[in-house]
Design a binder for these strands. Structure first.
Length: 350
DNA sequence: AACACGGGGGA
DNA sequence: TCCCCAGTGTT
């Protein structure tokens, strides 16, 4: 596309958007806080997945004050299953900053809003444009895919520096009369039509698309990086008390699934006896456990082979720091990961 | 610049 | 299985 066609392009794009846009909960509001919540949830997460979480979250935390005052564990419970849990911790931290330092008004400039926890270049532009109508770029993977095709940009989008090229291009083309619709329209296009396997015959702006003109839409965007994968074998120990309570431990605050509760577990060396390994890693002393579950769980780049053992604690065993017993009811109040949920499900079925 | 961080959907 | 997805924070 040529920049000189900007006006016709925007007319075609926005007309299509107003006609075809999906009716999404966060499109029924212009409350900056709600836009913020939706944008954070949408980071690396699909629309269909987000919708029920969004509805429940704003019902429970309808104002920034209510979120700022809430217990983190309670907030986390609303995020359970969404993944990337640091997002919601950062969101709450950011909201606390706004309530405490900005009289509960989300700043209207990129420089200020970028200082808030959890708001990066993308979310800054999204909130500014969608909630306040400020002409700012909001470049994500979607936008890079769409623009790489529209303008035949062949630079590697896996390289961080490449994003600047796209941000500049958005600022060249953005519709100043309706930046909110413009940014959302590009994302809508990327989500529904200009997908990895594009459906160009349905595209409202294919007449402006250089890649389509040259038949290169399938070759773009250029992306080089591939991530290496790790595999780990995890042994989990379901240890119960006579009263029916489970012994759990809290994961370290830092790292994967921080502060989540789970059965005591060890990363296992196949050659080692698992009870010995548990003792040396945690101090817990058990009778030999009985296997009750075996499954695989894939995180983005880590595959866990999980083996669950039902075990009995020796009377003489110490209860190390950070471990405590939970009843089934108590268990429902604390955040837990998918593998933990699966283990509990196996136990219930036995 | 590279990496950590979840989970689900589609090919 | 592999890749992708409305990214951000840390190192």
């Amino acid at each position: 596309m040529k920049i000189s066609q900007k006006e016709e392009f925007n007319k075609a794009l926005l007309t299509w958007y107003h006609q075809e846009k999906r009716d999404l909960p966060w499109r029924r509001t212009s409350d900056p806080y709600y836009i913020w919540v939706s944008e954070v949830m949408l980071q690396q997460t699909r629309v269909d997945t987000v919708i029920p979480y969004y509805e429940k979250f704003i019902a429970s935390f309808p104002t920034m004050e209510s979120l700022a005052e809430a217990e983190e564990e309670h907030v986390l419970k609303h995020w359970e299953g969404l993944g990337y849990y640091s997002r919601v911790r950062n969101l709450q931290a950011g909201v606390k900053e706004v309530v405490g330092n900005y009289e509960s008004k989300i700043p209207r400039t990129r420089a200020e809003i970028l200082n808030l926890r959890g708001i990066g270049p993308y979310t800054a532009g999204a909130v500014l444009s969608i909630a306040y109508g400020v002409p700012e770029h909001a470049v994500d993977g979607n936008v890079m895919r769409v623009f790489s095709r529209l303008f035949m940009i062949e630079e590697d989008i896996a390289l961080p520096k490449t994003k600047k090229v796209f941000e500049q291009r958005v600022m060249d083309v953005i519709d100043e009369t309706d930046p909110s619709s413009f940014n959302q329209a590009i994302m809508e296009l990327g989500a529904t039509i200009c997908t990895p396997n594009p459906r160009c015959l349905l595209c409202p702006v294919r007449d402006f698309c250089t890649a389509f003109e040259e038949g290169k839409q399938e070759e773009l965007p250029v992306k080089t990086k591939k991530l290496k994968k790790k595999v780990m074998t995890i042994h989990s120990f379901a240890i119960s008390e006579p009263g029916g309570k489970w012994l759990l431990r809290k994961r370290p605050a830092q790292g994967l699934l921080g502060d989540f509760w789970e059965f005591p577990q060890i990363e296992c060396n196949p050659s080692m006896d698992s009870a010995d390994a548990l003792k040396s890693a945690t101090g817990l002393v058990i009778e030999q456990g009985e296997a009750f579950a075996q499954f695989k769980h894939i995180f983005s780049h880590v595959t866990w082979h999980v083996e669950g053992y039902h075990a009995v604690l020796k009377d003489s065993s110490p209860i190390p720091e950070g471990y405590r017993f939970f009843s089934d009811e108590e268990l429902e109040l604390v955040p837990q990961s998918k593998p933990m949920s699966k283990l509990l499900m196996h136990l219930k079925n036995n």
